[in-house]
Design a binder for these strands. Structure first.
Length: 265
DNA sequence: ATGGTAGTAAAACTA
């Protein structure tokens, strides 16, 4: 019997056109079945589709001018491609933040969750609402027994261990208890955090380091806000989940990293 | 306690 594997990665590019020099070599070296991308920052008519096609990948995407934007890259056929929540209250940016598809029978949900800006800004309530809408989407379109992966930039550090100096981040939109609670209730539908399944209690494991902090990686001043969540059936077969700092080491570095997971399916 | 950098796209705005 052949051992079936599925490997997935997620990466917030902060401008996909400025990160092709990182993404394309990385794809050539890492045989992923799926790469989920956030913050492409490009409208659809300007999306750099050709470089991916020429490298042997298919790509689906939805973006906005200058902001937001999500994409999925895969060597496989992608089916059931959908954007946004389709819950009657979608705004244009919802379509540029939520992209779904099916790859090899596995449901993929790639999200760029609103950051929130400030606790007293309308965008923070939007962030909380977003997690509630996501849970409704899970309930409406999927079963807990499905092979399902929800990944992306969630803009939430789930626990104190997931951010440096957590005692100073209590009023930060990515660590405030209401944001953590909203995220927790959303993933409570039926998802496990793949990284913590394999690395429980391991400190200083971050997926994001602010550009503006000098030597942030060396000083361990980061956040674990990018996540790969999987339903029970997939989680049972998880082999590996790790953070690849490669994008931080380049000449034009990125503020986020590649987060990868490997499943037996 | 403020600002530090980066991308987009053409002056701020977001993160």
């Amino acid at each position: 019997m052949r051992e079936e594997r599925f490997t997935l990665a997620t990466f917030n590019t902060n401008g996909i056109r400025a990160r092709l020099h990182i993404i394309l070599p990385w794809l050539a070296e890492n045989n992923v079945d799926c790469l989920c991308i956030q913050e492409t920052k490009v409208q659809d008519k300007d999306f750099p589709e050709e470089p991916f096609r020429e490298a042997g990948f298919r790509v689906i995407y939805k973006g906005q001018k200058a902001y937001n934007g999500v994409a999925v890259v895969s060597p496989h056929e992608m089916e059931n491609v959908q954007f946004g929540f389709d819950d009657g209250v979608d705004q244009p940016d919802d379509h540029a933040r939520l992209i779904r598809c099916t790859i090899q029978g596995i449901g993929i949900i790639n999200t760029y969750v609103p950051q929130g800006r400030a606790l007293d800004h309308p965008n923070f309530q939007k962030k909380l609402d977003w997690f509630a809408r996501l849970r409704e989407l899970f309930e409406k379109h999927y079963k807990k027994s499905d092979r399902l992966i929800w990944c992306g930039d969630m803009n939430v550090a789930p626990e104190p261990i997931d951010v440096y100096a957590p005692e100073k981040k209590l009023n930060h939109v990515c660590f405030h208890e209401t944001a953590r609670k909203a995220f927790k209730e959303c993933r409570g539908w039926g998802f496990s955090d793949c990284f913590r399944v394999l690395h429980p209690g391991e400190p200083d494991q971050y997926t994001f380091y602010d550009y503006r902090i000098p030597k942030a990686v060396e000083r361990k001043l980061g956040w674990r806000i990018d996540h790969i969540m999987a339903t029970r059936l997939l989680c049972k077969g998880i082999q590996d989940c790790s953070i690849d700092l490669e994008p931080r080491k380049r000449q034009k570095p990125s503020d986020h990293t590649f987060l990868m997971a490997d499943f037996l399916i």
